[in-house]
Each structure stands twice: as C-alpha cells, then as structure tokens.
Design a protein around this nucleic acid. Structure first.
Length: 948
RNA sequence: GCGGGGGUAGCCAAGCAUGGCCAACGGCGAUAGACUCAAGAUCUAUUCCCAUAGGGGUCCGAGGGUUCAAAUCCCUUCCCCCGCACCA
C-alpha cells in the first residue's frame, strides 16, 4: 500500500461516490427512514472552518445512521432571505475596494465580481460555492437533488401557503410596533454583528416614561427610566442656555429639546413644532408634577444633553446621586439664586424607597461611600446610579410617602405607576436608543412606530402549550437545552414577520410591499425539501404549487384527482410526492449552532406544531457550540480563516472531520489551533500504518486473543451506545483511540492471529467510516470492499466479551507496572526479577470473607480452624482484607484467575519488556530463592516481587 | 434585570447525570533517549511534590457540609462567558 496521501485519496473517493451516485436517496418502504438537516446558512459571503463544525456533525450522524441500516435523507439548501446579498451587490457596484479584495482573496474572478453587481447573481454564485467547494469538498453525503433556496419561485409558493395557513389559524395579527429604522432607508437591525450598520451595534432600545408637567396651558416633558420615583420629585432641571421647542401633539403643546422633537416625530402620528422657548425663560417657574399633583420649581442645570430624553430632567435627589449633588451645589450658589431669584433653601429630598443595602436615603449614602463631591465625577456618578437602581429594584419597598403605592415592592410599583400615569394622561411612552446608531447608508437610526406591523402570534396559549408538550417529547441534545427549550417557548412573544423595504424574500400575501422576514420563512422548510426534489426533476413547476397542492401533500386534504384537476399535476406524480412526504416526515433531527437556541429552534418547532399534524412534528434537535479563534474570532494570522478548499487541501478533509468530532465536546466553544489539526493528521497517518501492520502479521492463535476479542466487542458495544445518543466525541474516541490502543497492546503482548487481526482491522475501518469516510474507503480496499460507507457497521458479539480474559490482562498490566515502578526508584541492576504469587490459603481466606463480610474479625475463629496457615500471617492478612472490604466492597475480593498460569504465559512478554530473567514461584513453598523474604507480602492478584 | 453556560494540572480539553478502579481520557508544549549526516519527521519514556522496593503527600476557582469515600452530591462565596427578539 502507498503512503497516506490525503489529497489524492480524498479527491478520488469523492469522485467515485459521485460517479456511483451513492448519496442519492430513494424512498424504500422496507427500511426505516431517518431524516436530518442542518440549519441552512444565509448567503452571507464566504464561510470559514468555524461554519463547518455543524455540517460535519450532521454528516457524521447521517453516515452513522445509514451504516446502521436506516434509509437516510440528508438534503441541504441556502437561505438568501434578507439584504445580505443586496448589500454585497451594492458594495461591488460602488466599487468598494475592501469588498473587492475580499472577493478576490477567496477566489472570485473579475468576471464574477462584475456579474455580482446583481444580487440575484450573488445568490447564484454562493449557492455554487457552498455546494461545490464546501459541502461536496468535505465529503458530505448530502443528496443535492433536494437542493433549494428561499428566494426561488417554488420556495416562495411554499412560504405563501404557510402564511395562509397561519392566517387561517388566526395566528397572524397586526398591531403597532416600535422598531429601529434608518431615517433614510427604512427598517434596520441593531445588533452586534452590525449587518445593517456602520456604528452602534451594541445600542439598546430603551423604553422611557415621558412625564408631563403642567406649565400653564402647556406641558414641560421629562423622560425617565424610573417612573416609580415620581413621589420624590423636588424640582425640574432645565438648561438655561438651551433653546427648547414647543410642539403640538394631538391637542396639547409639549416642551422639549429640538432633538427630542425630531425623534418623537417618528413615534407619534402628528407632531408639529410651533414655537421655541429659551430655557432661561422657564427658570424659577413652577410646574405641577405628574402623579403627585404638587408644584415643583424649575431650576437651572448645565449637565443636560439635548439628545438624551427630552433635554429636561425631573429631579429626585433622594434616589438620584446626580440630582442630589446638583441640588447641593445650587443651594450654595448664592450668585445663581440671586440671578434667577430662587427661594430654594427649604428644598429637601423626599425619601421614597427603602432598600436593604441603602436604607431610605440612598443617594446621600452612596455619595458618602464613593466620596463623590462634584457633578464632574461622571463615571462614579454613573456607577452610583446603577447600584442604587439595582438594589432598589430588587429589594426596595415603597415608603409611605408614596400614596396608594406605599408598601409595594419597587418592581411592582414601577409598572403600576407607569401604567396609571399613562392612563390618567399624565405621562406617555417614548423609545430611544442607548447610544448613537448610524446605518450603513450613513443615515441616523431612530426608533420609529410602525402602526400596522404584522406579527405571528407565538404568544397564543394553545400553541405555546402544545409546543412545550412536543419539546418535552423530543430528543434534544445537549440535555441543558432540552431543559431549557420549554422555558424559551413560554417566554416567546409575538414576533414580527414581515417588513417593508428592499429585501429578498417572499412577498407577504396579505399586503403589498411587505416582504416576509428571514426568521419567519425558515421554520417549516425541512418539509419542503421533499417537494423541491420533484421541482428539480421537472415533475412539477412553481405555478402548480397551489394551496390545494400543499394542503394535499402536507395535510392529506382533498382527493388526488381533485388536486390533479386543479393543478394539472398527474395524479400518480401527486401520489408519489405525497408518499414521499409521508415516508420521510417527521424530521428526526435538526442540527444548528447555539445562536439558534432562542430564535430559530423555537419557531421551527412552533410552526410545525401550528400547521402540521401531530405525527409530523419534529423529533430531535442537536445544538453545537462554535469553533473560535484565539481571542474570539477566527483570524487569518492563526490559520483556520483560509478559504475552505485551501484548508481542505492543507490539513485534509478527514483530518478536519476528525478534529471536529474529537477535539472537544460539541457543546463547548472550541478554540482552533493549527497545531492541533496537524496532530489529527498524524493520528490518521498512525492509523493508516497500524492497519497496514495488522494486514502483515503472521502467526497463530494465542491466549491473548481472547482479550482482544473481549475488549474489541466491549468497545464496539459502547461505540454504538454513544453514537445512538449522538455522543459523537465519545464514539470517535473509541474508534480512533481506544481500539487502536487495544490492538497495539495485543501486538506488544505477542498477539499474532492473522484471522483475528484481519477481522478487527476490517471492522475498525467500518467504524471510522462515519467520521473519516475517505481514508476508510481507501483502507477498506485491503479487504476488497467497494464503498465501505455503504456497508453496515459491525454488531458486537456479546459472547466474546469475557471478564476473565480482561481480568487476566489487567493482572499482567498491574504486575508490569509494579516492576517498572520498582525499577524506577530502586537502585538495582534489574537483571533478575522474581515474582512470587500468593499462597493458596490467602485466596481461600478471601473467598470465605466474601461470603460473610459482615462478620468482620469475628470470622477469625473459624478461619483459624479451617485454614492451614501460620496464625500471625493469617491475622495480619485478614486485618488488611477487612480494610479492603471497607473501602472497596466485598465483591472486589473475588479472585478469578490462576495467577501462575497467567504469568507463565506472559513470560516472553515480561522478559522482553524488562530485558531480564524472570522467575515465577509460589510463595510459601520451600526452596524458593527469596533473600529478603518478600514472598510473605504477596496477596492474591498482587504478587510479591524481588529484583536484583 | 431575565434566562443560560462555565471555572480541571504550563496550555487546549475529557470526566461531573449513575461518588470509589482519578494524580484525573486525549492532545499541545517541555525534558530525556532511540533512529538519523541532520531534522520542524517517527518511536519510547518522563512531565504536581517527596521517596534507593511497588509507598506517601497535596490537587480539580474559594470556603463549608454529607459520606467509610467527593473533581463528581448539598450549601455559601468569588470570577468569567453567552442569549434577550425582527439578527442569520
């Protein structure tokens, strides 16, 4: 056999698989179907090794299931919905050099780039790349006859149908929604990945209570995150230098900063700036504070930001460190008081909340504790504010200054006060972002009101309940997610499902200009793969995919002849499609990364529950964590970021597959290192050599054969147990580590049965096939097997598992270790090794003690009678044995082997191991050579040793 | 805040559900030796501390507890990470 040349081997086998169409899947009523998918990727650009982790797990399980006799369906598709392809095309159109370099670095030609100025071409291009360069190059057993993507005509028909079903079931609803939008280009997503943004991905959308202070005919407005503190209000802060605006809203006039008015414009229906007012003009005036109906005074402040809230702040000096400091300052500022004619010497904080940590006057207390002396110490003031808020929210209780809310917990009072104020018209709600956010296009991102947003009603009680029921029945891996999913479903609220603007996706069927959103069109799709195959083969076209068609195929409604008549699809084709669906569905396993846990997986499940019959709901979910680079992201400098085809060639596909399978549990983030990848390459080299070696061994049957047979079958059994539980790493550990180690031990021990070695070698090659199919195919050539990946995995043979055979070997190993240990630390030549196995009576004693361990030392009397041994030795031996019983249990006393015989059989091995003469004798016999009387220390299964 | 995950030897990373066979899988790195002109290649051994006879000590974030026995179970505590919705 040649040396292991992964590039050549892998390419050759992939071609052979394709030429022989071994991944093509057909319905076969004789076999149990197993249907699995990975969560298809969006078209986001080139992928790297991190993305391949999930796909590899999917393929390993697909192949394992196939090799255990299931008829496996493993399709794949892509998900171009959204604007990623559009924004890439736009960048290329604009000649964005960074993007162009990126495309070229990954192998795009100038021609490709030209043509990708059209988003449709972007989709086409990446569909090709994903299929040919990623999935096929990794040797995945995907049947591409089922391939589809979400912006194709047929898929859109499917989504249209799905939304009609949701509507029928009254799971669609319309209500106002406050979402993030760019003032230039419409809705955008604000999230750390900054897909749509150029700045501010970490911003949060915050809900403020807008308090309205009566100021003559008008209202002064102030925004707060803490409506529960209204009872502590003592004054308002207004910046005398700032020019505020007066806006007309409904029939009222509100005063706020110009910036605030601009933002509010996106959230309120009619709003008009009618006048301005300088802050200075209001200083010293009185307003009526909402909620408490008390007059408070307007005071000057310089720390106000027109872009935060309304540029006016209500002051709660008892609970807000900022306000406390500012109030202190101003009370001492005689000049200022005089200028504005302020009479505020009596203005004192009003205690409103008591918390465990901060008592009733938290602001004062924390200012002292943090030693804050001025308004300038912003950082510490922020910290103080945060700490008080947290303590108050958790442990706080409203004091009796708080009217009807006295005695309530802050958590409850907060919501209730807000609600009541709004109810009474004394407050409103506004939204703002916690930091500045700028769109990709350069426009400012604000929170805007969409009055008639469409939602899927995931809050529906029945749907929630049924989904939880289903989740509890499913096989969900890992266990932590199984525990979690029901809670997630419970928490899941209505989710908007369509948006206006320039997106790729399916047109929303009930309103023009709306496109179905990306999460919403990727929930039921495993069902659609089954139909996509028939579309791909030309059996049906998109126009024929009417409502009746889907109702029939998925739900079994209508007679085929009726649907056939309506759609023009031949009746037999319809029956074929329907049978396919019935055969393959439900989906057995959906695999996806951890990012899907709170978004995709819940809606995937809930849509199935909403629309499909009980027997067609999914059975399993497998979540994997990520492959990350040092410091979080996969980066170019450390490897792993190279284009996937390059990586496949550099490390080897099987190497990478084994890396994914074995280097870490699927349920932790794994750091990528190139060194580790090369280690796995060497591992495959070693396996290659081992198989070669195994083929060449000539010899005969020996006692040690039983041990290998036993170990192999025991491990094979566990391999299946692990793999059936999707314990991929543990399965790989057995196939690539434990079993080769057993074979190596066997050879080391002088095992040499060609028949056995061939059997084990050949079975091992089948066991590695799900993980590293290419090398498995190549190695199986040794046994003239065509397509080992089409074979069945070996079944373990229970009758070959032998505790005795293994315990013999454990014994030899233990003796070997002990000798080694002694040689390590004792200064002896090590030319002659004497081993003394224990006298027979010691074994008898143990057997007797095992029968009645509870008797303890009380057994001594009987033993003295029964056993022929020196009484002092007997006593100390029993003493020790009793200790053993205590710590290890009586069962461990069992002695099942003829130690002398085992050692005699291992003589050659031990001689070779230690390059010494070995003498074996029985303790207690006369005329043995034992100058230091070691033999008396011998115990059953623990022979005494003397070395010189 | 709500919800979740985690802290294991120089590093990565198993084990924890079902306590004992755990000084703790596997790997990297390191050290020594073999092979070789040489080696980043391969193989062997060592890699918590002590120990000239198979032994002893300490150890799995920290502190307590349960138990004959705890990395594993319970309590307390410190620290890190992730998701939280229109983002695939």
């Amino acid at each position: 056999m040649e040396d292991y040349d992964h590039v050549e081997i892998e390419e050759r086998w992939r071609k052979k698989w394709e030429d022989n169409e071994i991944h093509k899947t057909k319905r076969d009523e004789e076999r149990t179907p197993f249907y699995l998918i990975f969560a298809y990727p969006g078209i986001s650009g080139f992928l790297h090794l991190g993305h391949m982790r999930c796909y590899t797990y999917t393929d390993i399980l697909a192949r394992y299931k196939e090799m255990t006799g299931f008829n496996v369906l493993f399709p794949a598709g892509t998900h171009p919905t959204g604007n990623q392809a559009i924004s890439l095309a736009k960048k290329l159109e604009e000649g964005d050099q960074k993007k162009i370099d990126y495309m070229k670095r990954n192998g795009a030609t100038q021609e490709d780039i030209e043509r990708m100025k059209d988003p449709e071409e972007v989709v086409k291009y990446f569909n090709e790349i994903y299929r040919e360069e990623y999935w096929k190059d990794f040797g995945f057993s995907i049947d591409f006859d089922y391939f589809t993507y979400t912006t194709r005509d047929d898929y859109k028909k499917f989504i249209t149908w799905q939304f009609k079903k949701l509507k029928e079931k009254e799971l669609l609803t319309q209500k106002p929604y406050f979402g993030t939008e760019c003032v230039e280009c419409g809705p955008v997503a604000v999230d750390p990945s900054e897909t749509d943004l150029s700045k501010g991905g970490n911003a949060e959308k915050q809900e403020f209570t807008l308090l309205k202070f009566e100021y003559g005919e008008r209202y002064v407005t102030a925004a707060t995150l803490r409506p529960e503190t209204v009872f502590g209000q003592t004054n308002l802060w207004v910046d005398p230098e700032m020019e505020y605006v007066i806006v007309e809203i409904k029939d009222e006039e509100w005063i706020m900063s110009n910036e605030a008015a601009d933002k509010l414009n996106y959230q309120k229906d009619r709003i008009e700036k009618i006048d301005t007012i300088k802050g200075e003009e209001m200083i010293g005036d009185k307003v009526v504070a909402p909620g408490i109906g008390r007059e408070i005074v307007i005071l000057p402040a310089s720390f106000l930001d027109p872009d935060f809230g309304t540029g006016i702040v209500t002051s709660v000096p008892s609970d807000a460190p900022y306000d406390r400091i500012a109030l202190k300052d101003i009370k001492q500022d005689e000049e200022l008081k005089e200028r504005y004619d302020l009479d505020i010497d009596d203005l004192e904080p009003i205690e409103i909340i008591e918390s465990d940590e901060w008592g009733t006057d938290p602001a004062e207390k924390i200012i002292e504790e943090l030693d804050i002396s001025s308004q300038e110490e912003e950082e510490r003031l922020e910290e103080a504010t945060e700490r008080i808020y947290r303590a108050g929210f958790h442990t706080g209780e409203m004091l009796d200054t708080c009217g009807d809310y006295s005695g309530m917990r802050v958590q409850d009072a907060k919501e209730k006060i807000k609600h009541d104020l709004i109810e009474e018209g004394k407050a409103d709600v506004i939204y703002d972002l916690s930091e500045e956010v700028i769109c990709r296009c350069g426009g400012k991102v604000v929170v805007g009101k969409i009055p008639d947003q469409w939602f899927i009603r995931y809050s529906d009680e029945e749907l929630t309940e049924k989904s939880i029921e289903q989740a509890e029945k499913m096989m969900i891996t890992p266990q932590s997610y199984a525990d979690n999913l029901p809670t997630t479903i419970e928490w899941f609220q209505d989710r908007s499902c369509a948006r206006r603007g320039n997106w790729m996706g399916t047109e929303f069927p009930f309103e023009e200009d709306w496109i179905i959103e990306a999460i919403a069109d990727s929930t039921l799709y495993p069902a659609f793969y089954v139909i996509a195959k028939h579309y791909n083969q030309g059996t049906i076209n998109a126009d024929q995919m009417t409502e009746e068609f889907f109702d029939h195929v998925f739900l079994g409604e209508y007679k085929p002849e009726k649907v056939s008549e309506k759609t023009g699809i031949a009746e037999e084709d319809l029956e074929e499609i329907r049978s396919d669906f019935e055969y393959w569905y439900p989906l057995d396993l959906n695999l996806g990364g951890k990012e899907h846990m709170t978004v995709h997986f819940p809606v995937f499940l809930m849509n199935h529950v909403a629309i499909f019959e009980e027997e067609d709901r999914p059975r399993g979910i497998f979540v994997n964590w990520w492959l990350v680079g040092k410091g979080g992201k996969i980066s170019k400098s450390k490897g792993g970021a190279e284009p996937i085809p390059d990586a496949a060639e550099k490390y080897g596909v099987d190497t990478l597959r084994l890396f994914y399978a074995h280097s870490a549990s699927p349920f932790v983030d794994k750091e990528w290192t190139e060194d580790e990848a090369f280690t796995y390459q060497k591992k495959l080299d070693a396996l290659w050599d081992l198989i070669k070696k195994v083929r060449d061994v000539k010899g005969e049957e020996k006692k040690i054969d039983d041990h290998l047979k036993s170990r192999f079958n025991r491990l094979l059994k566990r391999y299946h147990e692990f793999m059936d539980d999707y314990e991929i790493r543990k399965g790989a550990n057995i196939a690539f580590y434990n079993i080769p180690a057993e074979i190596n031990w066997y050879l080391k021990r002088g095992g040499s049965d060609p028949e056995l070695l061939n059997e084990v070698g050949e079975k091992l090659v089948r066991m590695i096939a799900p993980f590293t199919p290419h090398i498995a195919e190549e190695l199986s050539d040794n046994w003239d097997i065509d397509f080992v990946t089409q074979q069945r995995l070996p079944r373990y043979q229970e009758e070959k598992i032998s505790d005795l055979a293994e315990s013999r070997e454990d014994y030899v190993k233990k003796v070997r270790e002990d000798i080694k240990h002694i040689l390590d630390i004792a200064e002896v030549e090590g030319e002659k090794i004497y081993i003394y196995v224990a006298e027979g009576w010691k074994k008898e004693v143990l057997e007797r003690m095992k029968e009645e361990p509870e008797k303890g030392m009380g057994l001594m009397g009987e033993l003295v009678e029964e056993i022929d041994a020196p009484s002092d030795e007997l006593a100390s031996f029993v003493q020790e044995a009793l200790e053993d019983i205590k710590t290890r249990g009586a069962e461990k006393l069992h002695v099942d082997l003829d130690e002398r015989e085992v050692l005699e059989e291992s003589l050659e091995f031990l001689k070779k191991e230690f390059d010494a003469e070995i003498s074996i004798s029985k303790a207690g016999q006369d005329d043995i050579y034992d100058p230091e009387n070691r033999s008396s220390q011998s115990k059953p299964k623990r022979p005494a040793i003397y070395i010189e």
